[in-house]
């Protein structure tokens, strides 16, 4: 079980809380210790909107351990409206095929169980096709 690790990362995982660099205003996700743009120390929390578009995607038919239950699942690199990209699963895909450039929005979902079904449930961001 890896409770401390999941607990430590909950803000960014549950709600896409990143950082805004106090020196150069860059929006940063996931949070980092040093701003990748200006090398200043980054630590001001910033709530991302959760809006973005698919930069690339693939379908996992052969899942690594811990993800078998959800197979097949789609993973994507999503370009967030605020600039940064993030790797995440896509969910709630209907009949429409996934396309690069497709607008998506963040939802909070179960990612997996820590260990077996006795372990804690780990929640985190996924993206789905924008509703409406």
């Amino acid at each position: 079980m890896e409770i401390p690790r999941h607990w430590r990362l909950k803000k960014q995982r549950y709600a896409l809380v990143g950082e805004v660099c106090p020196h150069c205003e860059a929006k940063i996700f996931p949070p980092r210790d040093v701003c990748p743009h200006c090398s200043g120390e980054a630590k001001t929390p910033y709530q991302f909107s959760g809006q973005g578009e698919v930069y690339s995607y693939t379908v996992m038919n052969d899942a690594p351990a811990g993800f078998e239950e959800n197979t097949p699942y789609t993973v994507a690199v999503v370009k967030l409206a605020e600039g940064p990209m993030v790797t995440a699963q896509l969910t709630d895909l209907g009949a429409e095929p996934v396309k690069i450039g497709m607008p998506v929005e963040m939802v909070t979902r179960r990612i997996r169980s820590d260990g077996n079904d006795r372990g804690m449930i780990v929640y985190g961001y996924k993206f789905r096709p924008v509703m409406q």
Binding site: S56, T58, P64, Y73, V75, A76, V77, T87, I111, G124
Partner: peptide, 24 residues
């Protein structure tokens, strides 16, 4: 691991993400 492995991504998946984008 915190942001890629955690999402169920593997080395092959990363290559797939790149190839998909390259093709596009």
């Amino acid at each position: 691991f915190d942001y890629e492995g955690f999402e169920g991504v593997t080395p092959a998946a990363q290559a797939a993400l790149l190839m998909q984008r390259y093709i596009y």
